[in-house]
Each structure stands twice: as C-alpha cells, then as structure tokens.
Amino acid sequence: MDSTPMKYAFAALTALAISTTTASAVEQNCRFIQAKPDREACYKRQEEELAARRKPAPATAESNTLETLRQMRQDDDAVYRSINNICRGC
C-alpha cells in the first residue's frame, strides 16, 4: 500500500494548521502591548489588513448587472418548474 498520498495530505494539513495558528497569534499580540498608542496602532493595522483581505475584487457595473440578471432568471425558472408540478383540481 502506497502511503505517499497520505504523506502529502498530512503535510498539507500541518501547513494549514500552522498558518491559521500564526494568523490568530498575530491578532492576540496587540492586547499584550503595554503602551496605549502602540497598542491602538497595532489594532488599526490589523483592521486595515482584515479589510484588505475581505475586500472583493472590483467588478464593473455591467458585469455585476448581468450576473444579477442571470441569477434572477435561474431563480424564476426554478419557481416556474415547481409551479408546473402542482396538481390543479386533482
């Protein structure tokens, strides 16, 4: 039995665990800073980094509108399909 895929999976999970641990460790470090201005600056940096990570890619208005229309059309089609399956006057 070849254990190579298991080794890769274990390595990937280990790397993921380490990366999430360091991210949470960075967030926890600010509260241990004694000087108030430095601590507030640390929190501000964290806020900016978090906002930058959460910021979605800029989409043009036209592509956003087309995507919304496609989604609405799919929703409408699903409703129409479910309505057609209702027995009227059985």
Results as ranks from 00 to 15, higher is better:
residue 89 G to K: 07
residue 4 T to F: 06
residue 87 C to P: 00
residue 46 Q to T: 03
residue 88 R to I: 08
residue 55 K to T: 11
residue 37 P to E: 10
residue 64 N to M: 10
residue 69 L to H: 03
residue 90 C to A: 01
residue 87 C to M: 00
residue 48 E to I: 15
residue 28 Q to T: 04
residue 47 E to I: 06
residue 26 V to K: 11
residue 45 R to F: 02
residue 87 C to V: 01
residue 44 K to L: 14
residue 20 T to A: 10
residue 36 K to Q: 07
residue 4 T to M: 08
residue 47 E to S: 10
residue 11 A to I: 06
residue 2 D to F: 05
residue 64 N to Y: 08
residue 33 I to C: 07
residue 27 E to L: 15
residue 71 Q to H: 09
residue 30 C to E: 06
residue 63 S to F: 12
residue 22 T to V: 14
residue 85 N to T: 01
residue 31 R to Y: 10
residue 42 C to A: 01
residue 65 T to A: 15
residue 21 T to H: 08
residue 73 R to S: 04
residue 37 P to D: 15
residue 33 I to F: 01
residue 42 C to Y: 04
residue 16 L to H: 03
residue 15 A to E: 01
residue 63 S to I: 10
residue 53 R to P: 02
residue 24 S to I: 13
residue 22 T to E: 13
residue 8 Y to R: 09
residue 56 P to R: 09
residue 41 A to M: 01
residue 9 A to W: 04
residue 77 D to P: 00
residue 73 R to V: 03
residue 9 A to Q: 12
residue 51 A to I: 12
residue 30 C to W: 04
residue 28 Q to C: 10
residue 82 S to F: 09
residue 11 A to L: 11
residue 14 T to C: 02
residue 85 N to D: 08
residue 37 P to C: 02
residue 39 R to N: 00
residue 7 K to N: 03
residue 26 V to D: 07
residue 49 E to P: 09
residue 20 T to L: 12
residue 18 I to T: 06
residue 22 T to H: 05
residue 79 V to T: 06
residue 70 R to E: 07
residue 26 V to E: 10
residue 6 M to S: 04
residue 1 M to L: 04
residue 83 I to C: 02
residue 73 R to L: 05
residue 58 P to T: 08
residue 26 V to H: 12
residue 6 M to C: 05
residue 26 V to F: 08
residue 26 V to N: 04
residue 38 D to H: 05
residue 48 E to L: 15
residue 60 T to H: 09
residue 79 V to Y: 12
residue 23 A to H: 02
residue 59 A to N: 06
residue 25 A to R: 12
residue 20 T to W: 14
residue 72 M to K: 11
residue 47 E to Y: 13
residue 51 A to W: 08
residue 84 N to M: 05
residue 16 L to S: 10
residue 89 G to F: 03
residue 58 P to G: 04
residue 62 E to T: 07
residue 34 Q to K: 15
residue 28 Q to E: 13
residue 12 A to R: 11
residue 78 A to W: 02
residue 59 A to E: 06
residue 55 K to Q: 15
residue 88 R to M: 00
residue 75 D to T: 06
residue 63 S to A: 14
residue 76 D to V: 08
residue 71 Q to L: 11
residue 90 C to W: 04
residue 35 A to L: 10
residue 39 R to V: 03
residue 50 L to F: 04
residue 54 R to V: 02
residue 40 E to S: 09
residue 3 S to H: 05
residue 56 P to G: 07
residue 53 R to L: 10
residue 57 A to M: 13
residue 90 C to M: 02
residue 5 P to S: 07
residue 6 M to L: 12
residue 11 A to V: 03
residue 28 Q to S: 15
residue 85 N to R: 11
residue 38 D to Y: 00
residue 81 R to S: 09
residue 77 D to A: 15
residue 38 D to A: 15
residue 68 T to A: 13
residue 41 A to H: 04
residue 49 E to M: 08
residue 84 N to G: 11
residue 50 L to C: 00
residue 21 T to F: 11
residue 78 A to V: 01
residue 54 R to F: 05
residue 57 A to F: 06
residue 48 E to C: 05
residue 75 D to H: 02
residue 24 S to N: 13
residue 78 A to Q: 05
residue 13 L to M: 15
residue 78 A to F: 05
residue 41 A to S: 12
residue 49 E to W: 11
residue 55 K to D: 05
residue 8 Y to I: 10
residue 54 R to A: 14
residue 39 R to Q: 09
residue 61 A to M: 15
residue 27 E to T: 03
residue 74 Q to D: 12
residue 67 E to F: 01
residue 28 Q to K: 13
residue 12 A to P: 00
residue 77 D to F: 08
residue 2 D to R: 09
residue 43 Y to K: 13
residue 84 N to A: 13
residue 75 D to C: 00
